[in-house]
Design a protein around this nucleic acid. Structure first.
Lengths: 98, 98
DNA sequence: CGGCCGCTTGCGCGCTTGCGCAAGTAGTGA
DNA sequence: TCACTACTTGCGCAAGCGCGCAAGCGGCCG
């Protein structure tokens, strides 16, 4: 069983920042899409159903939380998940929300 | 490996609500404390280091997200974790935040 | 170089959040 | 009933968030 739950204020701040990045349905929708592989901003914008600038801002939130990483190819910027654990965390949220 | 990540807008809304409840360091501190067993509001207020009304509001957030449950005993109201998975979710956040 | 495409950034708006403080409520005991 | 304790709720404020819109890059191609 995993123990070691108690943490410092700074660590809690960081964990809270991750949770905050996950606290928006559109960003969760992005993660679902990225689970199928990397996507460009306009692809994500289309799939999620919002305007490109708005999507870019959501992606910036996910990126500054370290949940996604980017790769530039010509005019396109492709986003992908930074870590498999991001999906595991999302699955935990889904499990609790059920 | 767990699949079944794709969900409806409503389900994403619910998952996002869980994440939002976890997106504050004080509330995470509450969860850490409650991992050691149930506590009264004033105990939590003391441990976390905030005023009682503020703690009551944070607990209301956790409660309406279904992460904690209450039990009344005389003048005291005791809070405890609603589910072991809440701690697992927190541990996932810690793991990603590292 | 000039125009275009893809993405990011800045700005302003309405809404939500966390907080302190004051007031209200529920339960206990004299 | 009255006072006391423990907790909740209402209120107002400052800060933050999501969004649309417009403007600003950066990289391609003719």
């Amino acid at each position: 069983m995993t123990a070691l739950l108690v943490s410092s204020e700074l660590e809690r701040e960081r964990s809270a920042a991750i949770a905050r990045a996950l606290s928006d349905p559109k960003r969760l929708c992005v993660l679902e899409t990225l689970a199928g592989g990397e996507r460009s901003v306009s692809e994500l914008s289309h799939d999620v159903g919002c305007q490109v600038p708005n999507m870019s801002q959501h992606l910036a939130v996910l990126r500054s939380a370290g949940l996604v990483v980017t790769r530039r190819d010509g005019n396109n910027v492709f986003y992908r998940l930074a870590d498999e654990r991001v999906l595991e965390a999302y699955r935990m949220l889904q499990s609790i929300a059920r």
